[in-house]
Amino acid sequence: MKVKTKLNNKPVVFDIEPGEYLLDTLRKHPVTSVKRGCDAASCGVCTVLINNEPMLSCSLLTARTEGKEITTVEGIQDAIRTFYDYFGDEGADQCGFCNPALALTVYAMKHELTNPTLEEVREYLVGNLCRCSGYEAQYRAIYKYLGDQS
């Protein structure tokens, strides 16, 4: 079946199986920044934005993106370049596997929450697991980034 959407601001038509999930479709297109961790809606590394809202592409049927806008980290390069500098400054990067999903979630949070507290930031990012960093450096980087941007 055919599904018409926009991927990173460009119109695309996906030719998919009915039970196909967005993560698999994106890999064919070929977006490799979107990772597969648990494949069970639990780790967050497959996060993409659908109409600017974070969703888990491993569990989202591609057919449901008809007429919607899909954003992956390739589509927000300008917006996140500064964000990555803050990550570098705090040493919040290790293997980087979780970074694209985290960047997209922070991007959505920045648009959704006004002057969030550190607690609210933590709460928003709770579904984005990272196996390397221990989170503290990430939170420091994100909180500073948001503070400087506001």
Partner: peptide
């Protein structure tokens, strides 16, 4: 609601 997984799941 806020104690059910993350925002990504709760948006779906």
């Amino acid at each position: 609601l806020k104690q059910v997984m993350g925002v990504g799941l709760r948006n779906m």
